[in-house]
């Protein structure tokens, strides 16, 4: 879980930086330059396979965990005050993950899927910048994306430092730093993602 989680976190960094290029506000020129690189480079294609493998592993692993953990307590407590000892989002990684997965399906259907299909059928890439502009003119779509970013925020808030804990990569001396980095990451990355549809919707990016 931790290993695949960290791998996906790495992907988020890449994804956020490239998409962040829209704020050059050059009509998507810089963005499309990198998007073209990502869409056509041979090595990136291999990495893409790895990414899907990582994602699937993360999901399968999560489902297995969920099942084992549920089975470990066949008879539930009649009354439990879990908020007294832990955070709700740390107990809700499965649900948050499922929400994110649901979002991902829609997200891939919007961008990655059509683009790849077009590439295969015509050999040409779609103008992803244009595609974004179109999609994010719809207020419901924007709200949907923002909501998904909240899921991602909570998922990361627990997941980031949890990954280090699971891999045994922590140490009293650095725990505070890991926690701060994790919180900062959990805020910044979803915020960056959420600002994209918002920026298009309000026309900050043209």
């Amino acid at each position: 879980m931790g290993l695949t989680g960290l791998f996906l976190i790495f992907f988020l960094v890449v994804h956020a930086s490239i998409n962040g290029c829209i704020w050059f506000n050059d009509g998507g020129k810089t963005f499309l330059y990198y998007a073209h690189f990502m869409g056509t480079n041979f090595l990136v294609h291999i990495a893409e396979v790895g990414l899907f493998a990582g994602l699937i592993l993360h999901i399968v692993d999560g489902l297995l965990l969920w099942k084992q953990n549920r089975d470990a307590r066949p008879e539930k407590y009649a009354y439990s005050n879990a908020n007294a000892n832990s955070k709700w989002y740390s107990r809700s990684m499965g649900i948050l993950g499922t929400l994110i997965l649901f979002f991902l399906i829609v997200h891939l259907r919007n961008f990655w899927g059509p683009n790849r299909l077009n590439q295969i059928s015509t050999g040409e890439e779609l103008n992803l910048f244009q595609l974004m502009q179109e999609d994010f003119s719809n207020v419901w779509m924007v709200l949907f994306y923002v909501a998904a970013c909240f899921s991602l925020f909570w998922h990361l808030l627990h997941g980031f430092k949890s990954a280090f804990q699971s891999l045994g990569l922590n140490n009293v001396k650095y725990n505070k730093a890991i926690e701060i980095a994790g919180t900062a990451f959990a805020i910044i990355v979803p915020l960056v993602f959420a600002l994209m549809p918002i920026s298009f919707y309000f026309g900050w990016v043209k």
Partner: peptide, 8 residues
């Protein structure tokens, strides 16, 4: 069960 680092 497995640890998911909840901390309870």
């Amino acid at each position: 069960g497995n640890c998911t680092n909840i901390g309870a």
